[in-house]
Computed example of a mutant assay.
Amino acid sequence: MTITQSPFEPTVTVFMLVKTSPEWLGFAVDHRFELLAKHFTPILKNHAANVSLRFFDVEFYSTRVTDIWMWDAADHHSYQLLVEDLRETAFWDRYFDIVEILTGVENAYAKNYDRPVITA
C-alpha cells in the first residue's frame, strides 16, 4: 500500500482504535485483501478528495486494539460521510470492532494562541 500526501489541508484528524475480529482473522490472507479491494478501497476512493487514511499495526504492543486507522479530513462533514459509508459494510463492528474514536486538531494550541508550533 502506497501512502500519498493528502490533496487537502486537514481540519480534523481522527484516530480509530480498532480490534480485528476472530471472523476476520479466520479468513485466508488473500481473501482479506480481496475483501479490502472489493468493499473498503472503493469507499476510500470515493472520499479521497476530502479524507485520507493511514494504517498503523499495533497488535505487537497492545492487546486492547490491533490497529489504528488515522483519518485526516478536510472538514467534519467529509469525515462523517465516510463513516456513514463504512457503517454499511462488514468492516464496521463485524470484521473490526471499533474500540474507540479519538478526534483531534493538529497543533490547535498553537493556532488558537497564534504561536509557533513546537516540533522536535
Rank of each mutant, 00 (worst) to 15 (best):
T11M: 08
M1P: 12
L81W: 01
V51S: 03
D30T: 08
A73R: 02
A108G: 04
D97C: 03
S6H: 04
A37I: 00
P116M: 06
N46H: 15
D57M: 12
T2W: 03
G104H: 04
L82I: 01
V83M: 10
I118K: 15
A108W: 11
R32V: 00
D67C: 09
W69L: 14
T119Y: 05
G104W: 04
Q5S: 12
L25C: 07
L25W: 03
L53V: 10
S6Y: 02
F15H: 12
V105A: 04
V58P: 05
E84K: 13
L25I: 10
T119L: 13
H39I: 08
Y113S: 12
L82G: 05
H76Y: 10
R115Y: 06
A74T: 12
D114R: 13
G26L: 07
T103V: 12
D30A: 15
F55Y: 09
T63E: 13
D75R: 07
N50S: 11
L35K: 11
A49I: 03
R87N: 07
L102V: 15
E59W: 08
Y109L: 15
F96Y: 15
N107V: 05
T4R: 10
T13G: 01
S62Q: 08
A120Y: 14
T13V: 14
P7N: 09
V99K: 13
E100V: 04
E59R: 13
I68Q: 00
F8N: 03
D114F: 06
W71I: 15
A90E: 15
V65Q: 09
L53E: 03
T63V: 07
L81R: 14
S78K: 02
F33L: 08
G26T: 03
E106M: 10
D75A: 06
H39C: 02
F8Q: 04
Y79W: 12
I43D: 04
L36Y: 12
F91I: 08
T20H: 10
V18T: 12
A49F: 00
E106H: 11
I98D: 04
E34T: 12
V65P: 02
T20A: 14
F15I: 08
D30S: 09
H77W: 08
P7Y: 02
D72H: 07
S62P: 03
I3Y: 11
A48G: 05
A120I: 12
T20C: 08
L35H: 02
N112P: 00
P22V: 06
F27Q: 11
A74Q: 13
P7G: 04
D57F: 03
I118T: 13
D75K: 07
R87D: 00
H76N: 14
H39K: 09
H39G: 04
Y109C: 06
T119I: 11
R54D: 02
E106Y: 05
T13D: 05
E88N: 14
F56V: 11
L53M: 09
W71K: 04
N107D: 15
H76S: 11
D114L: 09
Y61P: 00
T119F: 05
I68G: 00
D93W: 06
L44E: 10
A73Y: 01
L35D: 01
T13K: 09
S62W: 00
V29I: 09
L102P: 00
N107W: 07
R64F: 06
S52V: 11
R32L: 01
K111L: 11
L36A: 14
N50V: 01
H39T: 14
